[in-house]
Design a protein around this nucleic acid. Structure first.
Lengths: 206, 206
DNA sequence: CATCTTCCCTAACAAGTGTTTGGTAGATTA
DNA sequence: TAATCTACCAAACACTTGTTAGGGAAGATG
């Protein structure tokens, strides 16, 4: 990171559509090569322009990353909140959350991959504090649902609830690393299969 | 990557013990900050020396990464091979593989974390071709075990076997991202709980 | 027509990158 | 004691990095 001066926005007004398009391209490169391994020149290449031209649209490389992750999380919580505010039982809530997660993976595959790889190093920067907040809401939503399920007798009571949380969480989100849209499985179909395994296990019932 | 000339080893002979120690340190930094974000100066700092001094022990930064991953995979396959060659039923094989995996996470936490984050970009380089080979053996071992289980009637036949494979695989290895040795749970204890969830699910049986 | 706006290019910058070269303090060996 | 070896330092190297400044082509607007 060579320089860093003030961070005032340029007086010019780039079109939001072009911004979105460039962010989509940048997200794909970030996801494939990793944020740090991705140079602005690679992004510019993929967009068919030169490195400096990106700075007509964005303040910095880091701003692109932030906008990608923030857009994703905003949309994610739109979906989650509507699920969580619905009058569902714990099992139905879990099913809806998992399904919604796979839909988000389908829509924001690259952003999810970036989030998983980079969020851990980013949370220490004040600029990315919203990642921590989101993560806490996320954990609370899942833990509450699991606890509710145990209380209601629909989830097993003999499990470490925090371990179960991480189990479900990781199970769902790592799918972004191999999932490819249009690969025969719809998000709903994958969600169904995953839920079948998470809820009932892969062993035959005896 | 500024220069790159011949790759002949130095005529000097550094002690293997010191090499191992430095690799342990490097692995920790790689795992925490990511390979690309880790500069050789950071590694040297953590080791209490200067950047150039590392080159007395290693050819390059990439050599360190390769040796870390290769050491890990070698030991991993030592464990896996002894499990796979044992006369076990499919369920017992799966249990043993999962347990062995958590033991490896316990022993090579940093290497596992590095492997998960970086292997995807590395496989395209000829230097890291052994990663692909390992991954193929890995997939074959797991798929065979799962198929054997379906044939024997101990695993459910109504599941997409490749989805189940990724499910089990990811479930196990992402644990390296949060697992901390000496954190109350032994590898065997975590394996037991994970197996309970993977095999029987988290829902109460009705 | 002239002016402005949008969007990109050219060309450079300063800081940071992995790596090399030559040297040297201290222990080990002859 | 002298020679050798081990493990490091000091200082530079060629190159890459994110970023900036100034300019210009094409279209929209007056």
């Amino acid at each position: 990171m060579p320089k860093q001066k003030q961070q005032k926005k340029p007086p010019v007004t780039p079109s939001p559509e072009r911004r979105e398009e460039l962010l989509r391209i940048a997200a794909d490169v970030f996801a494939e090569q990793g944020y740090n391994a991705t140079t602005v020149r690679k992004i510019a290449d993929a967009a068919g322009m030169l490195a400096g031209s990106l700075y007509y649209h964005f303040d910095s490389k880091e701003s692109m990353l932030e906008e990608i992750l923030r857009t994703f999380l905003t949309e994610l919580w739109d979906g989650y909140d509507s699920v969580l505010s619905a009058p569902l039982g714990p099992r139905e809530t879990l099913e809806a959350l998992v399904t919604e997660s796979f839909r988000e993976i389908d829509r924001h595959r690259s952003a999810v991959a970036i989030y998983q790889k980079e969020s851990k190093h980013l949370v220490s920067q004040t600029r990315f504090e919203y990642l921590v907040e989101s993560q806490q809401r996320f954990e609370k939503a899942w833990l509450t649902t699991l606890e509710r399920g145990v209380t209601d007798g629909v989830f097993r009571a003999d499990l470490d609830i925090r371990l179960a949380y991480r189990f479900v969480r990781d199970t769902v989100w790592v799918a972004a690393s191999w999932y490819r849209p249009g690969g025969g499985h719809s998000p709903e179909e994958i969600a169904r299969q995953y839920l079948s395994m998470v809820l009932d296990g892969i062993a035959v019932r005896t």
